[in-house]
Amino acid sequence: MATLNMVQAIRATLEREMERDERIILLGQDIGRNGGMFRATDGLQERFGEARVVDMPLAEGVIVGSAVGLACSGLRPIPELQFLGFGSQAFHQIEGQVARMRFRSQSRYPMPIVIRAPFGGNVRTPELHSDAHEAKYANSPGLKVVTPASAHDAKGLLTEAIRGEDPVLFCEPLRGYRLIKDAVPDEDYTLPFGRLRIARPGSDVTLVAWSAAVVVAEQAAELAEQEGISCQVVDLRTLVPLDVEGLAKAVSATGRAVVVHEAPLTAGFGAEVVATIVEHAFSALSAPVLRVTAPDAPYPFSSLERAYLPSAERSLGAIRRVMGAA
């Protein structure tokens, strides 16, 4: 058991899995000698060679598109998008090809591809680097969308993703790469998809979040605690598949729910969470389900991101409202 930050856990998992399975090949921008923009692949090219850790031309479409062909050839590619925002350049390959090749080929060509991508804000990156685009991908049938919030989960979920047969978009919280640190077992383990985690027990309100927003929800729970409100924090871990039963159970236990996410409100994944709660736990609800999100404006330039992103304080406001206290 070692204490690792998120990026160390991811790096260690990639190394371990590449040792285990030589069909794994990493593709991306600056992942070789430079070890990735955030060092998620640090030293891997030295260790496994240029044939397995490939610095690709600067073109997301061909990074993902060639992964489709590599998978058809029998390899297990792990392409990296330098930032999820630039997944848009590969979106037609991800949504139109990776996600549906199994269906198109009637399972002749499975797509054991894990697309890794840092995402999310509050690290003062230039424009278009910080967007939380997870909902666009969650609405792409055939693809699984995984959003770990701890180093421990990053290892277990990434191992599961790599060993599985379905394509996965593995969203890594940029802000948490170094900030999120926790105990990670040395031995291999997998965490099943579609099982949420209760990050903090509580009895009055259920806060639902994923990725870096789990940290915000936990901070909000601390603030609420000081006002005598007990918040349960649920980390969804994977958006597709969604743990419908776990979600209904968690919300039924408190009767109140607030969803916290970084993406804009309209058509964000929070809408899916609320709809699922309403469908499966309606009778247990004692207040409307609220969402704390970014506004329906483009991700702004860096000087504005603090005001833009959902905060613990803004979440506390919603907690008070579902408690009928504001």
Partner: peptide
Amino acid sequence: QIFDHVYADPPPRLLDQ
């Protein structure tokens, strides 16, 4: 400034936000 220049005719929801 987050809200300025997003639309010529902003949706009411954005104005509330």
